[in-house]
């Protein structure tokens, strides 16, 4: 079974982003970038499935600028076998990414696609289910445990009220949640090995996908700042402050 994993290059989750003064977006120049944390979890899961003999090959795919190669090399260092970059300078929205991934799936014919449950930049949480719909495949979002048996997949999902278990027919799309696994550390020897693994580049034109965005960003602004609070010395002062403000009886 071949597994395809989508990986997005995003602003590192430790960076406190700044909104550009002209309101056109968030400053990404000279900012530390890394793999979307959920995609790292997805890659780890795919590599584990290959290591346990369930999968035969793990192909990682990223769409975006040439620098996405770094993200793909990280995925290869985590243990993926091969990478595909869909190179474009265009602004990519989830529907477009889903169409690009669909085109790659049609060429690669994977049995399982793993995506992150959300990208930490746009916080959209759309690409996985969109891809599933475009392919007419089953889906399991927010996965915290995944088992493959024959042509079926059993997935524990983190849902609002607790956990839900679903059984999906393969081929399927699964989106990775935080507790699916803890990704391994990338070691130096594996980084060296990753440099020799194959990385192909294609373009949206080659895949015959129109990348024109459907949503126009009118403005990006800072959320309203909270008014400065105050320190209270002890519990008595806290309780007095809360009751005079009317938030406790």
């Amino acid at each position: 079974m071949k597994i395809l994993v989508s990986v997005k290059r995003v602003v590192d989750y430790n960076v406190k982003v700044r909104v550009r003064a002209d309101g056109s977006g968030v400053e990404t120049a000279n900012v530390r970038m890394s793999m979307n944390p959920f995609d790292e979890i997805a890659v780890e899961e795919a590599v584990r499935l290959r290591e346990s003999g369930v999968a035969t090959e793990v192909v990682v795919v990223s769409a975006g600028a040439a620098q996405c190669q770094d993200t793909l090399r990280t995925a290869l260092a985590l243990g993926a076998d091969r990478a595909v970059l869909v190179e474009t300078g265009a602004e990519l929205q989830p529907l477009t990414v889903a169409k690009l991934l669909k085109a790659v799936c049609q060429r690669e014919q994977p049995k399982l696609v793993l995506c992150g449950k959300q990208a930490t930049d746009d916080d959209a949480s759309q690409t996985g289910p969109m891809l599933a719909a475009l392919l007419g495949w089953s889906q399991a979002t927010f996965a915290s445990k995944l088992t493959v048996s024959g042509d079926r997949l059993t997935v524990a999902r983190e849902v609002d009220g607790g956990l839900e278990t679903v059984e999906c027919l393969l081929p399927a799309i699964v989106t990775a949640d935080l507790r699916l696994n803890v990704p391994r550390y990338v070691t130096l020897p594996n980084i060296m090995k990753a440099k020799r693994k194959p990385l192909d580049t294609v373009t949206p034109e080659f895949l015959q996908v129109d990348v024109t965005p459907r949503l126009k960003t009118i403005q990006v602004c800072e959320p309203p700042a909270r008014a400065a609070g105050r320190r209270v010395a002890d519990v008595a002062e806290l309780v007095a402050a809360l009751s005079s403000r009317g938030v406790i009886a």
Partner: peptide, 20 residues
């Protein structure tokens, strides 16, 4: 978690963006 699982599918089939 239901809305986030269903609405992207709906949007993709209608070939429209979804706004989350």
């Amino acid at each position: 978690s239901m809305g986030k699982s269903v609405m992207p599918r709906v949007a993709a089939v209608l070939d429209v963006a979804q706004i989350s």
